[in-house]
């Protein structure tokens, strides 16, 4: 059994970081994009990230925002695949790839694109709230 010498509960400090004005704005956008409740997203972020990454969330979101183009119609763009795997790594690459794969399969099986994407979003939401 490994015991840490000075390990503290950091959740309080992490919550303070997440409640700064810039983070509030970014989290609101993320919540609207994926349809998750803010507290659930916060909990997920606090569990997964260390404090320097938490501080950097608004800047990383901005990087992703700059990369996007208006005309991009791909599924990856709709999911924000690189956003939640690379910039703000909430999902692992494998999880994201399998969701994209399933959605692609549905579309090639004659399914409509918009409901397929919204089902994919539901899958992402499930991973986020788990």
């Amino acid at each position: 059994m490994v015991t840490f010498l000075y390990e503290n509960d950091l959740r309080e400090m992490k919550l303070i970081i997440l409640s700064s004005p810039l983070h509030e704005v970014t989290l609101k956008i993320l919540c609207e994009k994926y349809g998750v409740r803010r507290q659930i997203l916060r909990k997920k972020l606090m569990d997964l990230f260390d404090m320097s990454l938490l501080e950097n969330i608004p800047a990383r979101y901005e990087v992703w925002e700059k990369e996007q183009t208006e005309t991009d119609q791909s599924i990856e763009h709709a999911f924000g695949a690189s956003l939640i795997t690379r910039q703000i790594p909430l999902l692992t690459e494998d999880e994201m790839n399998s969701i994209i794969q399933q959605t692609n399969d549905k579309i090639s099986a004659g399914y409509d694109k918009i409901p397929a994407i919204s089902e994919g979003m539901t899958m992402i939401r499930e991973v986020l709230s788990s």
């Binding site: 320097s52 501080e55 800047a59």
Partner: peptide, 18 residues
Amino acid sequence: KKISIRTPSIMNIEACVH
């Protein structure tokens, strides 16, 4: 009314550590 400051160290420390 509202102020938000983004300092350079936020990005640089994150880049350094990760």
